[in-house]
Design a binder for these strands. Structure first.
Lengths: 110, 110
DNA sequence: CACACTGTACGACGAGGATCGAACACATGG
DNA sequence: CCATGTGTTCGATCCTCGTCGTACAGTGTG
């Protein structure tokens, strides 16, 4: 009987393979979201909770950005107690959009 | 003496090397603009005038999109009589954003 | 010159999205 | 149980951007 927590029900992940290029590019075209992705790329999977990112926005806005990244198939999230841990879906996203993530994350500026 | 035509004065090209990743991604995150780029990629340089593209927008809007692509260092334009010819700046843009253009243009859908 | 054609400039409009504050849900530790 | 910490949701606001119609500027042709 499942017993998914009410919390987890808000966690809808998009399959990167079914994400449109439009959605992917829109998700990547925001500096706050790119900073989240860079941060994730620089750390091990499941080691960064949403609140541990140093972002120039309130937590409400940050929550919005995490949702957008989830909908674009760029990140995966998992609840660990009161915290929500994150993982960059590098391999899956690369399979759907070869070279795109590397082109964005490997860029020096921005 | 120069004698640049008044027409050509409206042609300000951005150097791809000085374009920010933000600007590049914003330019790429529009379906009409991507369709222009795909069209250019499929034809020889300087063979396509602005009016020869089959776009789902009016010419005023199309003109705006060409200006955005120019500002992002993605295309180069040259006046040929009454027409304005276009060229995809593939090499220069690739040097500034390695892999980005390929990732976008080589994608099947969109 | 008059006319057609190509493309830009300008002003206006509407939709979408980034942002915030406040309220809420859940987990955890005293 | 109460307080604290984490994160989401909701409504409101603001502002950018895509879009259009119209007017305009050059070019070329009859």
């Amino acid at each position: 009987m499942a017993a998914e927590s009410a919390r987890a029900r808000t966690l809808t992940h998009a399959d990167p393979a079914r994400v449109s290029l439009q959605t992917a590019l829109e998700a990547l075209a925001d500096p706050v979201r790119r900073s989240i992705l860079r941060d994730l790329a620089a750390h091990d999977d499941w080691t960064r909770a949403c609140g541990t990112f140093d972002l120039p926005v309130t937590k409400a806005t940050a929550s919005h950005h995490f949702a957008v990244l989830r909908s674009a198939g760029l990140i995966e999230q998992r609840d660990e107690g009161a915290r929500r841990l994150n993982r960059l879906r590098r391999a899956e996203f690369d399979a759907a959009f070869p070279g795109l993530l590397a082109a964005v994350l490997d860029h020096a500026e921005d």
